Simulated assay, not measured.
Amino acid sequence: MGAGADTAAEAHGGRRIAADAALVLAGLVDGISMNGLSPVPAIWICFALAAVALTVRHRAPELALLAAVPGLYLGCLSMAPLIALYSVA
């Protein structure tokens, strides 16, 4: 393989990291916009865990879904659990 193949693989990896970062940011913005600056630490833990779980959705989609579902169940999140569910499907 030539240098062009390495450059294409690096570009694909960079796009994947950027897409994951955008999804984590969307999950965090969703949690903050739905809950405001809630003083309840359980809500902060739920949406931080769900947003971080999105980073492993390619390698372990079931784990990402399991980490994100409590936020959906509690009603404090909507975007991160749905992204994780889409990854499993």
Rank of each mutant, 00 (worst) to 15 (best):
S87Y: 08
L77V: 02
R15W: 07
P61V: 09
L77M: 15
I45L: 15
Y86K: 11
S78H: 01
R57Y: 06
D30I: 02
S38A: 11
L77K: 04
I17N: 00
A89Y: 06
I83C: 04
T55P: 00
A89F: 04
T7N: 12
Y86N: 11
A5P: 02
G36A: 06
I17T: 05
M34S: 08
P81N: 03
A8Y: 04
G13T: 08
A68G: 08
L85N: 13
F47H: 14
H58C: 00
M34H: 05
I45P: 03
L63Y: 03
I83E: 08
P39I: 10
S33E: 06
Y73C: 14
D30F: 07
V24D: 02
A11L: 15
R16Y: 00
C76N: 12
D6G: 06
L74I: 11
S87Q: 09
C46S: 10
L23T: 03
P70V: 01
G13L: 08
V40D: 15
P70Q: 06
C76E: 05
L77W: 03
R15K: 08
R16M: 15
M79F: 11
W44V: 14
C46V: 02
R57F: 07
A5K: 11
A84M: 07
V52I: 03
I83Q: 02
A67F: 09
R16F: 01
L82I: 13
P70I: 03
T55M: 12
M1L: 00
F47R: 14
M34A: 07
A60W: 12
W44I: 12
R59T: 03
L85M: 15
M1T: 00
G27V: 08
F47Y: 11
W44L: 13
A89T: 15
G36W: 04
W44T: 11
V69Y: 14
L72R: 02
V52Q: 02
H12G: 10
L23G: 02
D30C: 12
A84N: 11
P81H: 09
A9G: 13
L63M: 12
A11E: 03
L74P: 11
A5W: 12
P81M: 10
A67H: 00
A53H: 07
S87L: 11
I83S: 03
I83H: 05
G31H: 11
L85H: 06
A3L: 11
A64V: 05
V56L: 13
G36H: 10
A80W: 08
A80E: 05
I17M: 09
